[in-house]
């Protein structure tokens, strides 16, 4: 464990200036309508961080950087670029098939929860869907953080035993001849679905193709958009 010595250690609790962003709401309670109010969860996360900062176990500035990264910098646009490149560049596609982590890293998408990636390719014969039945494992560097439904109990349980029905609820109907395979993510292995390139996209540039790749198409609960489709 490398904590950089006592570099994070703050002087005392009262001088600890934590960078909590204010989401204090004016209380609904009429007796206190000029006061700030913290929810139980908000107060608890501040309490945990206060203790950990005092112990020198975490640097509040490092926590802020992580927030900033996942709120604004990492998102499914990264994955869309991987997919578009796989559509236009057969060599990249082959690399992605053989060693997805390395191929994805080569585009600069490196980092937490992306260390062990596996790309699964949709074909007319097989459609791929991704879930984490355990919790919510997800390839952050290429897709950002998971949507609410990915973390919901019904998706995590149902996609395993009735994937076609779940897909239908997302508005996707596949021919019976297309097999559906469900991949269960783990804390060690994350999946990225490479959707099929849509018909009518032959003349498009790589940048234009990126716009056709939805987040859901890379989880397998959607398809890539056809050109002109909104």
């Amino acid at each position: 464990m490398n904590l950089g010595g006592a570099a994070f250690k703050l002087r005392s609790r009262n001088s600890a200036r934590m960078h909590f962003r204010e989401d204090a709401k004016i209380s609904d309670d009429h007796h206190h309508d000029h006061d700030n109010h913290l929810s139980d969860m908000d107060a608890k996360v501040r309490a945990l961080q206060t203790i950990l900062v005092e112990k020198g176990l975490v640097d509040p500035a490092a926590v802020d950087v992580v927030v900033e990264t996942y709120e604004h910098k990492v998102g499914p646009k990264n994955g869309a670029k991987v997919v578009a490149k796989a559509w236009v560049d057969p060599e990249f596609r082959a690399w992605l098939e053989k060693d997805a982590s390395a191929a994805i890293n080569s585009l600069g998408y490196v980092g937490r929860q992306g260390e062990h990636m596996h790309a699964v390719f949709n074909t007319p014969e097989q459609h791929n869907m991704v879930v984490c039945t355990l919790c919510s494992c997800y390839p952050w560097p290429v897709l950002g953080l998971p949507p609410v439904w990915y973390k919901s109990p019904p998706y995590r349980s149902r996609v395993v035993y009735e994937p076609r029905k779940v897909l239908g609820e997302f508005g996707v109907e596949l021919p019976d001849s297309t097999k559906i395979k469900v991949w269960d993510s783990t804390a060690e292995l994350r999946y990225l679905v490479i959707p099929m390139r849509p018909a009518g996209s032959d003349g498009l540039s790589e940048d234009e193709l990126v716009e056709l790749v939805s987040r859901d198409s890379m989880i397998g609960t959607g398809l890539a958009h056809a050109p002109g489709q909104e």
């Binding site: 989401d23 996360v45 950990l52 490092a62 992580v66 937490r112």
Partner: peptide, 13 residues
């Protein structure tokens, strides 16, 4: 809500 971001980032850090 911001506390969710805080809880997430604290865990990652």
């Amino acid at each position: 809500e911001p506390w969710q971001a805080q809880a997430f980032a604290l865990t990652v850090t």
